[in-house]
């Protein structure tokens, strides 16, 4: 994907950061791949040991660094490899989402879900849904961005100093 493309809303291909837990959701992504289920290539996966490991600050930092959206997926409640890591994570993510949407980040950019290792098909569906949601709201303008401008346009140095 060309960086210049991200400036065009009609050809907008969002960059979505996906935090997937090692035991369920990452395995689900793996299963989707080995089952040859197609889903959009917009997600950049970061594998973490558990959804409970994801510091909410990482998600805020992702938006600061220009991610158009974030997807976090862990094991279903009750299925956590570490018993209750996702239970703690759940409260944290609810608070984070409330905070970000209150600060003016579109609700569609902040996505949380649960996905087990056997749900390869569902994982592909979730990625499609998330990409659609982010496409609907367009490029992330950045915390400093005036309306209607893409993140990369303002952060000129990122787009090669233009």
């Amino acid at each position: 994907m060309n960086q210049a493309d991200t400036k065009q809303i009609d050809t907008f291909e969002p960059k979505i950061l996906a935090f997937l837990c090692n035991w369920c959701s990452y395995a689900a992504a793996d299963l989707a791949g080995s089952s040859r289920i197609q889903y959009p290539p917009n997600i950049r996966v970061i594998r973490v040991p558990c959804s409970g490991r994801i510091d909410p600050l990482l998600i805020i930092k992702a938006f600061n660094s220009g991610a158009d959206g974030v997807l976090v997926s862990g094991c279903h409640p009750g299925d956590c490899h570490y018993t209750d890591g996702n239970m703690y994570a759940r409260r944290r993510f609810v608070m984070l989402k409330e905070l970000l949407t209150f600060a003016g980040v579109e609700e569609e950019r902040v996505n949380f879900t649960w996905c087990s290792a056997s749900e390869g098909k569902r994982f592909a569906g979730i990625v499609r849904e998330v990409v659609d949601r982010v496409k609907k709201v367009g490029p992330w303008k950045g915390f400093a961005g005036p309306a209607g401008q893409g993140f990369l346009e303002r952060e000129g140095e990122l787009a090669g100093g233009k």
Binding site: M87, Y88, R90, R91, R92, V94, M95, F112, V130
Partner: peptide, 17 residues
Amino acid sequence: TLLTDYDVNDPQPGFLD
């Protein structure tokens, strides 16, 4: 504290199905 505790039936508004 709120975030060092949980309830299995905690609500999860805004989560994707």
